[in-house]
């Protein structure tokens, strides 16, 4: 089955979405991530969507779900690299993703996660 790879970098899991998202793929990713957070005791999750040309309500919901479930499992999620056109569209759609932390790119996202890990 088609899967989006999850990379482990120390205490952080990195997901780079490079392919066109379809619904099943999004659901699988959500399940896989929950498994991996638990298995690796990860403290942070970075989701890089810079290659995504659209985010609809289904993918938006997946992102919100990942963020909530990782928080419950004591890992912080940072969504990085959202394209301007995608951001404008999501806002118009009515999906503001409150509570989901964001950063411009993977570097900044990583820094955000390390900084908040240090504070704790």
């Amino acid at each position: 089955m088609e899967r989006i790879p999850i990379l482990r970098m120390g205490e952080i899991l990195l997901v780079t979405v490079q392919v066109e998202m379809h619904d099943q793929l999004a659901l699988t990713l959500q399940e896989d991530l929950a498994e991996r957070i638990s298995a690796t005791a990860a403290r942070g999750v970075l989701i890089d969507i810079s290659a995504l040309e659209i985010v609809d309500s289904f993918i938006g919901r997946m992102i919100a779900n990942i963020s909530s479930l990782s928080r419950i499992m004591d890992a912080q999620t940072v969504l990085v690299g959202m394209q301007p056109a995608v951001a404008i569209t999501l806002v118009e759609l009515g999906l503001n993703l409150p509570g989901v932390a964001t950063a411009l790119n993977v570097d900044r996202g990583m820094k955000l996660l390390l900084d908040s890990a240090q504070r704790q």
């Binding site: 040309e53 659209i54 985010v55 394209q83 056109a85 404008i88 569209t89 118009e92």
Partner: peptide, 26 residues
């Protein structure tokens, strides 16, 4: 997306249209 590009829609208008298509098709 391809049709919208051929029509000369701006990127934001393209993205909005394609997202609407995704929602309505689902």
């Amino acid at each position: 997306r391809k049709l919208a590009q051929d029509c000369g829609l701006r990127l934001v208008a393209q993205t909005k249209l394609v997202t609407a298509v995704s929602e309505l098709a689902r």
